[in-house]
């Protein structure tokens, strides 16, 4: 009996380990494959490759679409992240500290963009912007504020999630102590609250940046004619070419985001905040 139990336990542990590694493999394999492909020298994908080269990376430097797309994505993501934080910091403070009617409803409302498919958000915003334009002559669709505003919807849920998680662990007595010592509201925020949720703030900024930077569905509806974000540039390129250029762009993106994650982990310890 005892041996049977031991065997069962051992088998269970093996199966568990196997499942974990299979999961990792499933997640990582495509990325590793892309990484590998980006160095193939042949234009038409085939295995094994004819040879290896950096020509796809060099080629990127001459492709205006990708460069412009990268710059626009960067601008949009930075602005959407800053705006998302500006909204989410006060909202999180109120949501964590406050005990009022409708608190749950507001929280769910702010988290909603995580649940609604991005393509639906994009289409809905497009229609909404057009209606607004018809009514007021303010051209939102295809404008920079419209695009950034739409991306802010994406960044808010991530910011709220990470900030509230950090704020819950912050003893309100610490802020009260600051008040009793003569600190008014904004001084408390700047000197006590924000420094104490700093890890959450950094993580929120990082995640917000990543979701905005990688977003395709919403941008697709809202970019100005002739302009592209990086994901749109990739999509458009794929429509008539299938060479490893895409793999090179993707690899650069992965490296960029990976570096961001690594730096964040160094500064605040990601395991602690996410």
């Amino acid at each position: 009996m005892v041996t049977g139990d031991r065997l069962g336990e051992r088998f269970g542990r093996l199966a568990y380990g196997g499942a974990v590694w299979a999961g990792f493999g499933f997640l990582l394999l495509p990325i590793l494959l892309v990484l590998w492909l980006s160095f193939f020298s042949n234009e038409i994908l085939s295995l094994p490759p004819d040879g290896y080269s950096l020509r796809w990376y060099e080629g990127l430097l001459t492709k205006r679409d990708f460069i412009d797309g990268f710059i626009l994505s960067l601008e949009v993501a930075v602005l959407a992240t800053l705006a998302g934080l500006a909204v989410s910091v006060p909202a999180s403070l109120v949501l964590v500290r406050g005990r009022f009617k409708g608190r749950e409803a507001i929280l769910n409302f702010l988290m909603a963009p995580l649940i609604v498919p991005a393509i639906v958000i994009g289409a809905a915003l497009y229609i909404f912007f057009i209606q607004v334009e018809i009514a007021t002559d303010i051209p939102l669709a295809g404008s920079a504020p419209g695009l950034v505003g739409a991306h802010v919807l994406l960044t808010i849920p991530w910011c709220i999630r990470l900030l509230t998680a950090n704020l819950v662990g912050l003893d309100p007595a610490i802020e009260e102590a600051a008040a009793s010592l003569g600190a008014r509201g904004w001084v408390i925020l700047a000197r006590v609250t924000l420094p104490l949720i700093w890890p959450g703030l950094v993580a929120a900024a990082l995640f917000a940046f990543v979701v905005s930077f990688g977003n395709l569905e919403i941008s697709l509806f809202l970019v100005a004619p002739g302009e592209t974000t990086l994901p749109i540039a990739i999509l458009q390129y794929l429509e008539w070419k299938l060479d490893p250029t895409i793999a090179a762009v993707s690899t650069l993106q992965v490296v960029l985001i990976g570096a961001g994650l690594f730096a964040t982990d160094r500064v605040v310890g990601l395991a602690r905040v996410v």
């Binding site: 102590a177 600051a178 009793s180 010592l181």
Partner: peptide, 15 residues
């Protein structure tokens, strides 16, 4: 912040 009262909390509440 305008009262000038010293407060000591149960859980210290140090910064």
């Amino acid at each position: 912040h305008r009262r000038n009262i010293g407060v000591v909390f149960q859980n210290y509440a140090l910064f």
